[in-house]
Amino acid sequence: MDANVAYGRALARAFGGALLFSFPLLMTMEMWSLGMAVERTRLLVFLLLSLPMLLGLSYYAGFEPTFRLKDEVLDALAAFGVGFLLAAVLLALFGVLGRRGLSFQADLGKVALCAVPGAIGALVAGKQLGEGAPSAHEKQRAGTLGEIFLMAVGALFLAFTVAPTEEMILIAYQMGPLQALLLMGLSVLLLHAFVYGLGFPGQSRRRQAGGPLRTFVGFTAPGYGVALVVSLYLLWTFGRTDGVAPHEIATMTIVLAFPAALGAATARLVV
């Protein structure tokens, strides 16, 4: 019985985390229209990719201190449920769902798209809102692949909050090639500074790992690469790349990679 009570509290925390992380998206108009307009195959790919991502995230930052595969699968599924139900309830409350005449698919698309950031929030909440930070050994479990995975989740998460907006395209249109290169340089610089210079919790190992050059090769360069890939993937999912000239796609990717790089750099802080 005690275990159930403890789990219930963890679940309540998960709802709190999902709420904190996903409400900006739930209250963004583009998310609703994208939920209807996103090409269904791309939405399907996004949903199918989100489940293994949640599983991996549950391994590193579940809302229970678990290590066993079964528990992690259960946590990942529960997190998806939390994100989905929260998105459904809040969108219904905002009057976004159930508009007379709109098809069921349209509503489902909106909820499904918003469920994923909520689910990430639900898993992360275990750590963020938890009673006490996870012990040191849990943090250091991440090997190089694990680090890159966490950076990708951090990048996805931060990029997702702005990727659906029109502003990403608008900024890309407004920027010249020189500005794009400068923004790229700034992103790499900030990523490196966050990873190497600033002593965020959980980053002690990186600073011990070697000099700035080694950190650059080991974390900053792959981190920015991950940020670029995640940005391009999100733009493709939202149909922003269709029929657009390659250099414009590149600029959009660089623009979106700016928040993505910040997300990758602070992944350890967030997830």
């Binding site: 159930n4 789990y7 529960a78 997190a79 449920g81 069921f104």
Partner: peptide, 22 residues
């Protein structure tokens, strides 16, 4: 705990519904 199985089952239903319909 039992609650964990129940919430995971609800999550599974949500995920299957979303993926299934989409």
């Amino acid at each position: 705990p039992l609650l964990e199985w129940i919430s995971a089952a609800i999550g599974l239903v949500c995920a299957l519904a979303a993926i299934g319909f989409v």
